[in-house]
Amino acid sequence: MRILLWHVHGSWTTAFVQGSHDYVVPVLPDRGPDGVGRARTWSWPASVTEVPPAALREQDFDVVLLQRPHELDLVRRWLGREPGRELPAVYLEHNTPEEKPCIQRHILADRSDIALVHVTYFNELFWDNGRAPTTVIEHGIIDPGARYTGELSRAAVVVNEPGRRDRIVGADLVSRFLPVAPVDVFGMQAKQFAVAQAQSAGVPPDRLVGYEQEVPTQDRMHTELARRRAYLHLTRWTSLGLTLIEAMQLGMPVLALATTEAVAAVPPAAGEISTDVRRLVQRLRTFLAEPELARACGLAARAAALDRYGLKRFLADWDVLLDGILR
């Protein structure tokens, strides 16, 4: 099967292109958002090829995988075909509704010719999907391996643009853990956030450190995360983050807000999941004092994540959906 898709979400796409199909990603000279091309931060197979927009009309595709509203128009302009009618199409919705939870209608709510795929059951429940045919295909990732050492008495959190996204991703909650342990923040603009937060909280700069993602990042970041005693998942209202699943498969114990899909993803044995931040802080204190307990919780986290978010199941679910669309 030949699939056209945009490189939008690097971690998700890295898992998706491990399948048995041929994948085409548009590429622009500046590698901007609509033409990122092949990944330079992740390892992709040779089955993923780059094609400039001007050459897409000459290409044959079995299906197009859409991930952003304006990609519907990009297909019309770049391929000269109507997605869903002249070219089989799937729309993958990565996110929770941002404007009006529970009542926000999806862009495809009035269409029945494009399959709408959500990445969590929570997302499907909270979007108004209208008459769009919906399904849920939960995340799957490449197993990073059991790397947990917990040798550093520090907590880790991964979040992009914490300063801008603030309360949505729980950036305001990070400082509540600092009296118990230093926190390392990984992600885009993490350094700027860490400096500002450390100054605001009046703590030494080494107690809240930001690490920017650089090339190559993924393998090194996984190793560094696994050296921290526990992983913090503090998002209030986002889709289920792949970094949470990665941390669990690394074997890290997890301290998570009991919000959105995290309630289903994180079993109690994996650490602590609660809307009471005080319980998460106390659990971190316990993990610092009892490293073997932290390790045992991390093993439970890894087992749960491998069982639910394995790559084989993920790819099989997508094959079933795509085969059904083309029949």
Score class of each variant (00 low, 15 high):
Leu306Pro: 00
Arg68Ser: 13
Leu322Thr: 06
Gly140Tyr: 00
Ala54Asn: 10
Trp237Asp: 07
Ala55Lys: 12
His21Ser: 06
Leu293Ile: 08
Ala270Lys: 01
Val17Thr: 06
Val36Met: 13
Thr238Glu: 13
Leu299Tyr: 06
Ile273Tyr: 00
Glu99Gln: 14
Asp34Asn: 06
Ser175Trp: 01
Arg2Asn: 08
Glu212Ala: 14
Asp22Lys: 11
Thr275Tyr: 04
Arg154Gln: 13
Gln249Gly: 01
Asp30Asn: 12
Glu272Phe: 04
Ala201Asn: 11
Pro216Glu: 02
Glu99Met: 15
Lys312Asn: 03
Trp78Pro: 02
Thr41Ala: 13
Val169Ser: 01
Asp307Asn: 12
Val25Met: 06
Arg147Leu: 15
Val25Ser: 01
Ala262Met: 14
Pro267Gln: 06
Glu212Val: 10
Arg85Ile: 11
Thr235Ala: 15
Ala296Cys: 07
Leu178Phe: 05
Arg236Trp: 06
Gly210Asn: 05
Ile325Lys: 03
Gly35Leu: 02
Thr41Trp: 08
Cys102Gly: 07
Gly310Leu: 03
Val277Ala: 07
Gln213His: 09
Glu246Met: 01
Asp166Val: 05
Arg85Leu: 13
Val51Ser: 01
Ser274Met: 11
Pro182Cys: 09
Glu98Met: 13
Trp237Thr: 01
Glu290Arg: 15
Trp42Thr: 05
His233Ile: 00
Val266Phe: 01
Glu246Leu: 00
Leu299Ile: 12
Ser43Ala: 14
Asp143Cys: 09
Thr235Tyr: 10
Leu178Arg: 01
Gly170Leu: 02
